[in-house]
Nucleic acid binder design. Sequence first.
DNA 1: CGCCACTTGTCATATTCATGTCATATTCGA
DNA 2: TCGAATATGACATGAATATGACAAGTGGCG
Lengths: 228, 228
Amino acid sequence: MNVTILLVDDEAAICDMLTLALETAGFSVKTAKDGQTAWHLLNEQHFDLALLDWMLPNLSGIELARRIKNTSELKEMPIIMLTARGEEDSKITGLETGADDYVTKPFSTRELISRIKAVLRRRAPAALEQQLKYGDLILDGLSQRVRTEKTEIVLGPLEFKLLEFFLRHPDRVFNRDQLLNHVWGGSVYIEDRTVDVHVLRLRKALKVADLSHIIETVRGSGYRLKAL
Amino acid sequence: MNVTILLVDDEAAICDMLTLALETAGFSVKTAKDGQTAWHLLNEQHFDLALLDWMLPNLSGIELARRIKNTSELKEMPIIMLTARGEEDSKITGLETGADDYVTKPFSTRELISRIKAVLRRRAPAALEQQLKYGDLILDGLSQRVRTEKTEIVLGPLEFKLLEFFLRHPDRVFNRDQLLNHVWGGSVYIEDRTVDVHVLRLRKALKVADLSHIIETVRGSGYRLKAL
DNA sequence: CGCCACTTGTCATATTCATGTCATATTCGA
DNA sequence: TCGAATATGACATGAATATGACAAGTGGCG
């Protein structure tokens, strides 16, 4: 599993507690204390899911949700709202705004985690997979290894993430900017052309299993993992 | 790329510096020293994005932003606000007003450029994120592929765009100039006979699925995608 | 501390490929 | 049948991509 969650809550205590719980459950977590910061982060890197507190300074959770759902690149990201009891009415609006689920404080971390998984299963099943398969190629998220039936493929960390990303989105073209955002994670200022080099390295590594052709170049657009 | 940016800032030094940086990055830049001038320019000419300083003489950045978002022709234009540290509160209003992002001074030009790209990237591509169908022909925007049930059709980038354009406007005749404008995008100095060649190439590619006849020649007028 | 192994970003250069143009053949309509 | 419009094949060129080499950063380990 390689799920990155954005947690937005202004109470540090809750943030810490949830971060711990979520990381224990195997998620990667990034936090923001207010709507502003959250919005920034969302524009910089990819998240698989957002946990939004209802009440937020600067930019309220609901407003943030509305924005996300109005932004084509973020539209697909599932949102879970965190609401306090007594804000029941708000939930309605929350769901109407586009939240995929809501959780009422106080809640058990177990409940939260199970809801997160439920939502992900529904919206992005691939994200929960530990092992990704492509033909006889197997990418194992836990051991960070890639291999085919008979060959072990040795990858550097970045090449691993790159391949993983492609495996999660087969047969779709990504341009260099998109790859930088998703694989490198935003807030990093790198030349587009660097992507070429890493694709090259990935292909070179795949060669030992005679699989370098599975990453296709789409001239003028970017790269794509060939459909099986 | 061909992106035109309106930069509004009253400090000449910053204007010059940013203009240089942005032009180096491949953008076209026009500057205005105050909100008034900016507003005039916006009504005269199309801009792909506006960079607004928060503090402006005459018409403040936020007020300008509000106006832009209330004007139907300008509503779609992304806005990035430039704020000084210590004006943090203002950001709230800024984003609520409709700015798409903000950058806090001092900032690196790299960061600014990367944010500009991020914002620009988010607007258009939604249109292509779907499939167009014509009989059993399928054009898929995500994977940038064209195929029928049994045959994959390999197209170059331009042929792809050309076919896409035809699929969006079936059974309508376009002359060569119109095709140049729509498919090549205006402001190109190309022989209109070149269109013939690309139609030829498109037909040739469609041949593998025995579909070359769907693009019809209308003598004296141009070309047309045959109605189903 | 310092050396080494490893990763990663960038640049310079080589290579590939899409595209625009032209010269020529063919077709169409009157 | 004639002339104009279109089809077709060939080709040069430049832009996009591939590739190899290098340098800076990192962390381990003696």
